[in-house]
């Protein structure tokens, strides 16, 4: 579904941050990406989502749309979203004045239109919302509030997963969704993410800890250091990283 080859990127006019990333993600797979602070995890996620602050300086990324590999880097951010990509932000953005419901419905309908599905009316959308709210244990008091405005850190993270549940992406990139969640929230959100995972979609989870991986067992774990993936393995690699630290990975690599 997603093929990343020798991807190099930098902040526009800044130093190179991604220094040649290679990664394949197929439908039905769950990947975890770990790595020290500042190693380039969020940068990778933002480059994949099409953030305009970054400039790709080398390599290629293809994303399969209707069974055909398309040049992801040639697409604009909203086109990537409409093609089924979703990024849960490490730091979700506040959008004053726009209620969660209005925002979610606008996004949902934009994606429906792009995929040739008729848009839903306010009532049907409400039903969908109610179902997905339950999945991630949110109550509907959040719906009429402006998007993320004055939400607590954990609430913002949950709100990202609510959006993911509504928009039903084929490729979800979760950037440290687990940090900031209390133990109960972590369990509920993790269970939610797990339920959303199907043989037809894929998940790329960026995380520092084992915690979320205890609920969702990844098929692959990658360690990103200084802009490159230095080691890949199965879920046991995550445990090894947590007990031995990144120096061990560096030495072993």
């Amino acid at each position: 579904m997603l093929k990343i080859r020798e991807l190099k990127a930098r902040v526009v006019d800044g130093p190179e941050i991604l220094k040649g990333i290679n990664l394949d993600v197929n439908a039905g797979e769950i990947h975890a990406v770990m790595g020290p602070n500042g190693s380039g995890k969020s940068t990778l996620s933002r480059v994949l989502a099409g953030h305009p602050d970054y400039e790709v300086t080398g390599g290629a990324v293809t994303f399969e749309i209707n069974r055909e590999a398309q040049d992801l880097l040639a697409m604009e951010a909203h086109e990537r979203a409409r093609a089924g990509m979703f990024l849960a932000f490490q730091y979700p953005v506040e959008v004053p004045g726009v209620s969660n419901t209005v925002f979610l419905r606008a996004a949902f309908n934009a994606i429906c239109r792009a995929q040739g599905v008729p848009p839903v009316d306010a009532f049907d959308f409400r039903d969908l919302l109610t179902e997905k709210l339950a999945l991630i244990g949110m109550d509907d008091s959040y719906l009429e509030r402006p998007v993320n405005l004055d939400f607590s850190g954990g609430e913002k993270k949950r709100n990202e997963i609510l959006q993911m549940a509504i928009l039903a992406p084929r490729l979800a990139i979760l950037d440290e969704t687990d940090s900031g969640l209390d133990v109960d929230s972590l369990r509920i959100v993790s269970e939610g993410v797990k339920q959303l995972s199907t043989p037809h979609n894929a998940t790329l989870m960026i995380t520092h800890y084992q915690r979320m991986l205890q609920y969702i067992t990844p098929d692959f774990v990658h360690v990103l250091m200084d802009g490159q993936i230095v080691k890949s393995g199965d879920h046991t690699l995550a445990e090894a990283v947590e007990t031995r630290g990144y120096d061990w990975v560096k030495d072993a690599a």
Binding site: H78, F86, V95, G97, V102, A110
Partner: peptide, 18 residues
């Protein structure tokens, strides 16, 4: 703008929503 775009809204739709 990027946040809204990453949810499928083009820049016009995003600005009009805001």
């Amino acid at each position: 703008l990027f946040y809204l775009q990453s949810r499928g809204l083009d820049s016009e739709e995003a600005i009009s929503l805001l």
